[in-house]
Design a binder for these strands. Structure first.
Length: 300
DNA sequence: TACCAGGATGTTG
DNA sequence: CAACATCATGGT
């Protein structure tokens, strides 16, 4: 059991609400108040679950640990999982600072009150956020979840535990060795399939790595990402906010954001990119976080 | 039926 | 450089 204290401003309820927003989600499972996640780490499957108790996240690893008890290897795995959850639920962000910034904008401040303690539910794995955002390009979320489900269940590894099957994201290496034809029966457009192959090969070949990327300043990261065919401004910023802790990354082209802003500000129509860029100046430093809060408002 | 979905790219004028 | 077509399907 791993014990992970949470900061004062942390809402497990809102986190769960986000995690259960779509029934087709297959990269994590929520059973009651318990979250299950399967990861493939260095070729090995690791299943763990998370509970919230006494202001702490309690993490339990369910797959057998091959290394001896209290060995360095075991400690490394524990540290990895702990770090993963810390990143996933963004426990280290300074929410107070975000809330202070939000005071510049009455509407956003209101959302901050409604969702107090909501931290960005991210994707600790950059490859995952890139794959997911490419899948999500241009199509509605429901269809995007269908495509993701097919990708994961057809090409990813799985594990059965207590009569339940859990799924892990296919590795870059696995996807890199596929061809366009492998995607066709699953109703990926050719371009979408090609884009996924592009990033998979970039990761598999070592041309792109999260470790190298996260050392770079904001604009250099964005430029590196946009160089990959299939990754535009929206995708790059989405991944930067969800995986690289760039809280000011701003996917201004996002249709969900447009709809949320239209509703929250009671606008006649959806805001233009120019308008939205102007509006976002009030959220400066936290544009990505503001975006996440606006998305959350779409859940009702 | 037409139009829009958590866009990006290639082509055309 | 801006406007437009294309993608592949589900929802409204």
């Amino acid at each position: 059991m791993i014990h992970l204290p949470t900061p004062t401003a942390f809402s497990f309820t809102e986190t769960l609400r986000f995690l259960t927003r779509n029934e087709k989600e297959c990269l994590h499972t929520v059973k009651g108040e318990t979250i299950f996640k399967l990861l493939e780490i260095d070729g090995e499957l690791v299943l763990f679950s998370i509970n919230f108790l006494d202001s702490s996240l309690q993490i339990t690893i369910h797959t057998p640990i091959t290394s001896p008890k209290s060995s360095p290897q075991e400690r490394t795995l524990f540290e990895f999982v702990k770090k993963y959850v810390q990143n996933w639920f963004d426990l280290e962000a300074n929410l107070t600072d975000f809330y202070k910034t939000a005071q510049n904008d009455e509407i956003l401040a209101n959302l901050c009150q409604r969702f107090h303690g909501l931290r960005m539910v991210g994707m600790p794995d950059l490859f995952e956020s890139l794959v997911w955002s490419i899948i999500g390009q241009q199509i509605n979320l429901n269809f995007a979840y269908s495509l993701k489900e097919r990708l994961v269940k057809n090409f990813g590894k799985s594990l059965v535990y207590n009569d339940e099957t859990f799924f892990a994201l296919p590795t870059p290496e696995k996807l890199a060795n596929l061809s366009l034809e492998d995607f066709q029966p699953h109703q990926f457009s050719r371009s979408k399939a090609q884009y996924i192959l592009n990033i998979s090969r970039a990761f598999a070949d070592g041309n792109l790595s999260q470790r190298d990327l996260e050392k770079l300043p904001f604009e250099e990261i964005r430029e590196k990402l946009v160089q990959i065919k299939g990754v535009g401004n929206w995708t790059a910023n989405y991944s930067m906010m969800k995986s690289l802790k760039n809280y000011d990354a701003f996917p201004v082209e996002d249709v969900g954001l447009h709809n949320a802003v239209k509703t929250q500000y009671s606008l006649e129509g959806k805001p233009s990119i120019v308008t939205l860029n102007l509006m976002s100046e009030k959220w400066s430093g936290w544009k990505g976080y503001a975006t996440f809060y606006f998305w959350h408002s779409l859940l009702g």
